[in-house]
């Protein structure tokens, strides 16, 4: 048995033991996203050891890696072949793992234009609550055999089982990229982001903060040049640093606590009454630092067709996500039991 099989066997034992002792397991990659979701009271199951790229076929545009593989390792490998993860995931820590990225389902600035983590996931290998190793999906782009359990795992926060391996679709890096900055108020920026997205402009990220709209263009050199003419504004010297600071939330605008994430239909009005937001994803996500009660924010978002997440707080978070209405909540419960009938992973993290 190699070390990975050994790890898997031991982890299977661990799951069975937890089941027997009616204990719960909270899965941890590097802990970089430990702040995200509800606080849990459970034993920690570390998966960082179960690491390594299993298969990478640049020509197939697919990569398969064990869940403990560090995102940095994957991104460096892809970069060598001039490829990238389309969803530009936030790391929130140097050791962030692929498993954590997929379990939280968090995507970065490119998301509205190149798809989310869930869009890129092609297949998964999972350890379920009965310690069974299961495979869903595969390494091909088109696959409709069986229900899409792989995508169900994305964003499930480890409450359905342990992700062991994930196959993702990758994309070639654009030949050229450039970031422009234009001065305008939030409402106008939201409108413009939507208007541009409805026209053939090679957008790859958009954001608004502190009175300025930021636009990243990606594509062939000629296409980017042509779009720059169309859009105008000033080219900022260090585009990559700006998008990284936004993605990793290291910019001061996102240091406020509690930090709320409003996920909205892109064209929804900017709620300036809540204070100055940071807007990204073409208007689809708006970050607010506000002490407004959760219920007020949820009602506001719901009215506009969106939902709210308490993303970061100084206090322990007990209700991060918008509660589900019935009968959806009961359906979720039944789905969880389908994969984890004994509740080994029922940590309440989401």
């Amino acid at each position: 048995m190699n070390i990975h099989d050994q790890w898997l066997a031991a982890t299977g034992e661990r799951v069975l033991q937890a089941r027997a002792e009616k204990r719960k397991l909270s899965i941890r990659g590097s802990g970089s996203k430990g702040f995200y979701g509800n606080v849990v009271d459970a034993d920690t199951l570390d998966v960082a050891e179960y690491a390594g790229v299993v298969d990478y076929q640049p020509r197939e545009l697919t990569l398969t890696a064990r869940a403990g593989t560090r995102l940095e390792v994957i991104e460096a490998l892809l970069a060598k072949n001039n490829q990238m993860l389309p969803f530009e995931p936030p790391h929130f820590g140097a050791d962030a793992t692929l498993g954590g990225c997929v379990s939280t389902g968090l995507s970065g600035p490119r998301r509205p234009y190149a798809g989310a983590v869930r869009d890129a996931v092609l297949g998964t290998k999972v350890l379920d609550g009965r310690a069974q190793v299961l495979r869903f999906g595969g390494q091909v782009i088109k696959n409709v055999a069986g229900y899409d359990v792989s995508r169900l795992m994305v964003g499930a926060m480890g409450t359905l089982g342990v992700l062991l391996e994930v196959s993702v679709k990758v994309l070639p890096c654009p030949e050229s990229e450039c970031t422009l900055m234009l001065e305008m108020p939030a409402d106008r920026a939201v409108e413009i982001m939507n208007l541009w997205a409805a026209s053939p402009v090679p957008l790859s990220a958009t954001a608004w903060r502190a009175g300025h709209l930021y636009v990243r263009l990606s594509g062939t050199e000629s296409a980017v040049q042509a779009a720059m003419q169309k859009i105008g504004g000033a080219k900022i010297p260090d585009g990559p640093a700006f998008w990284q600071a936004l993605r990793e939330q290291t910019m001061p605008d996102l240091a406020m606590r509690p930090l709320w994430r409003l996920s909205m239909p892109t064209a929804a009005k900017a709620f300036t009454a809540l204070g100055q937001p940071v807007i990204e994803w073409g208007g689809g996500v708006r970050w607010y630092g506000t002490d407004m009660p959760a219920d007020t924010l949820r009602a506001l978002a719901k009215q506009a067709g969106g939902h709210v997440t308490l993303f970061r707080s100084h206090q322990p978070i007990t209700q991060a996500f918008t509660p589900l209405p019935e009968p959806l909540a009961a359906l979720h419960q039944r789905i969880r039991l389908a994969l984890d009938p004994h509740g080994v992973f029922d940590t309440g993290r989401m």
Partner: peptide, 8 residues
């Protein structure tokens, strides 16, 4: 919106 609370 781009996502929804709960499982996908």
């Amino acid at each position: 919106a781009f996502d929804a609370p709960g499982y996908d």
